[in-house]
């Protein structure tokens, strides 16, 4: 299915009923709270890049799947450096049967930056046959960086398939060694690994919005 890229639709605060077939790009300023509602049969994508906006960034997003067979694929890339403080709070709320939601959050944290990723999946008692997944991967790149992850689940229906996973760690020494054994310096090897880590989400962004922060 083809998705139309739309960046102008999102409110900084408030609620948006999402039409089907769109890929929403969040290019809002540093702080924003909003809710996205997906009706019956709506399929949409969501992409967010946090990092270039400001020193302190906060996003509070609720994804409400209100219609049967609604489908959401959301990707968030967080790149924090220097003394930045970035906080993400997200809720995937399944209120009706047959909905699917996938949320992937990848973050890189350098220098003295700090990130907090709080995310919750809530499955209502009426939301049988729901499928919800959440993945959070955090790459910490300096000894003074700090990452906090809190993935939560609240499941009130038995006929569901839900999973979440979170990892926090540094660059794999074996991967760095592999590149260095090919004649690449340590500094460039780390940049290559960082780029590869972020690429999964960056390549989804249209040209002009993709910037390696």
């Amino acid at each position: 299915m083809e998705f139309r890229m739309l960046s102008a639709m999102l409110p900084a605060n408030g609620v948006l009923s999402v039409p089907t077939g769109v890929c929403l790009i969040d290019d809002l300023p540093a702080e924003a709270d909003y809710e996205l509602r997906l009706g019956s049969g709506v399929r949409c994508k969501f992409i967010l890049h946090l990092g270039p906006q400001s020193q302190r960034i906060r996003r509070n997003v609720v994804f409400s799947l209100l219609g049967e067979n609604s489908h959401l694929d959301a990707s968030v890339l967080i790149q924090a450096k220097q003394n930045q403080c970035i906080e993400w709070r997200g809720i995937q709320r399944h209120l009706i049967r047959g909905a699917h939601s996938n949320l992937l959050i990848k973050s890189t944290v350098c220098n003295c930056a700090k990130i907090s990723v709080f995310s919750k999946i809530i499955i209502d008692p009426l939301a049988a046959e729901s499928c919800a997944n959440f993945q959070n991967k955090n790459l910490v790149l300096s000894d003074r960086a700090h990452a906090v992850a809190r993935p939560e689940l609240e499941i009130f229906s038995d006929d569901v398939h839900c999973s979440h996973g979170a990892t926090i760690g540094g660059i794999n020494p074996a991967e760095e060694f592999y590149l260095r054994s090919r004649g690449i310096s340590s500094r460039i090897a780390k940049i290559i690994i960082r780029c590869a880590f972020a690429e999964e989400i960056l390549y989804q962004m249209p040209n002009g919005n993709a910037s390696f922060h």
Binding site: A145, H146, A149
Partner: peptide
């Protein structure tokens, strides 16, 4: 769960 990690 809460994961709180300092350092790389």
């Amino acid at each position: 769960p809460t994961l709180d990690v300092s350092g790389n």
